[in-house]
């Protein structure tokens, strides 16, 4: 079994970083995780965001959260990106592959991917 001592090491490593981190995140990614989202495949999408944000060292800037149903179940998995005062960007029918691309181009590169948004889907 993965030992609890390893957990203690994680704590040691984290202690210095934590102080810097508080209140710094300016971008929030919300993944719809109600029954509709889960059934449509939101769990691997959420995991892809969590892993990719950590991998790209964006944890100080981006938080990944889970949200309920926003009433557009046919578009699930739905992912909303909130950035400061900018208008929110709503991505629809998101896959884990798209999630990685959104992290790379939008969260890291600052350019939303128009073709994955609800605006494009409704055309």
């Amino acid at each position: 079994m993965k030992s609890l001592e390893e957990l203690a090491k994680i704590r040691e490593r984290m202690q210095n970083k934590v102080i810097l981190r508080e209140g710094q995140a300016s971008t929030r990614v919300a993944v719809g995780m109600a029954t509709c989202g889960i059934a449509a495949g939101a769990r691997p999408v959420l995991n892809a965001f969590v892993e990719e944000v950590a991998k790209q060292n964006l944890s100080d800037k981006v938080t990944v959260s889970q949200t309920g149903c926003i009433g557009m179940c046919r578009f699930e998995p739905i992912v909303e990106v909130f950035e400061g005062d900018n208008e929110r960007v709503t991505y629809v029918k998101v896959t884990p592959e798209m999630a990685k691309e959104i992290v790379e181009k939008h969260l890291k590169g600052g350019k939303p991917i128009a073709e994955y948004t609800i605006g494009a889907a409704e055309k």
Binding site: L4, I10, R11, M14, Q15, E51
Partner: peptide, 12 residues
């Protein structure tokens, strides 16, 4: 073990 410093949601 983690105390108040590290949230359970930390990627590590």
């Amino acid at each position: 073990i983690l105390g108040d410093d590290v949230p359970l949601s930390d990627p590590m």
